[in-house]
């Protein structure tokens, strides 16, 4: 098994250094790394740091052995892709939201918007195909969360950084979502998932995982 993502001595301080987050860890191919910790522990912050949306005060991140500074940020963020705790929908229809990443200049030419794939994921996640024409702003929380996940899957990341992906879903939809994720991991053996979850049920549905506990340290720094 080879290492997909590794982070060493990541440190990020808050409130002028009164608190700080510190974390090290890694995820191997085919693995799920569950990130746990109390509210405010810095779980979302850690995922955003790994997606290079926030800069750590110190620490290194490696993607397949390459230090993060050596990789173009736009490419990194598509491949090591963060899906936020609260789904972000842009103005326009669900279809237009799913196409958004394909309108960006950094999107490689081989990767085109695949409506078939979108519809397949919608079916697997219990969303009606008519929803493509719905205004994204009118979706419920759980619907937005699933549309955001589909948008993420369509850009074919290698590592998914999922921030409480099941928080807004009922038991049935949660199981659907976890099945999709497990299937997604199996489709390509290079893939991996880092996932924040408070939910014990999530863990039961996952065949294989490791846990990373995160906590905020009080710090004189």
């Amino acid at each position: 098994m080879s290492r997909v993502l590794e982070f060493q001595d990541i440190r990020k301080s808050f409130d002028q250094g009164a608190h700080y987050l510190s974390a090290s860890g890694y995820v191997d191919q085919g693995e799920v790394l569950l990130i746990r910790g109390p509210s405010g522990a810095g779980k979302s912050t850690l995922l955003k740091i790994l997606a290079r949306l926030i800069r750590p005060d110190q620490g290194m991140i490696y993607w397949e052995g390459q230090p993060y500074r050596a990789v173009d940020p736009a490419l990194w963020r598509r491949k090591i892709h963060y899906v936020p705790q609260k789904a972000v929908m842009f103005e326009g229809t669900v279809l237009s939201n799913l196409q958004t990443p394909f309108r960006l200049s950094s999107m490689s030419d081989e990767l085109r918007f695949d409506q078939e794939a979108a519809l397949k994921y919608m079916e697997l996640l219990g969303l009606h195909p008519d929803m493509l024409e719905q205004q994204a702003g009118t979706l419920s929380g759980g619907e937005s969360a699933r549309v955001a996940l589909i948008r993420a899957l369509l850009i074919q990341p290698q590592v998914l950084l999922l921030d409480e992906p099941t928080a807004s879903l009922d038991d049935e939809r949660r199981d659907l979502l976890l099945q999709v994720l497990v299937q997604w991991l199996k489709e390509d053996d290079k893939r991996a998932i880092l996932m924040v979850s408070h939910n014990a049920e999530d863990i039961k549905s996952l065949p294989f995982y490791r846990v990373l506990e995160v906590s905020m340290h009080k710090g004189a720094e």
Binding site: L53, A74, R77, R78, P84, V88, F90, S106, R151
Partner: peptide, 16 residues
């Protein structure tokens, strides 16, 4: 700010 962050996560350039 959340939309901007999401676009960056999807691979947008700063200008996009």
């Amino acid at each position: 700010i959340e939309e901007i962050e999401e676009l960056l996560a999807l691979g947008a350039s700063p200008w996009e």
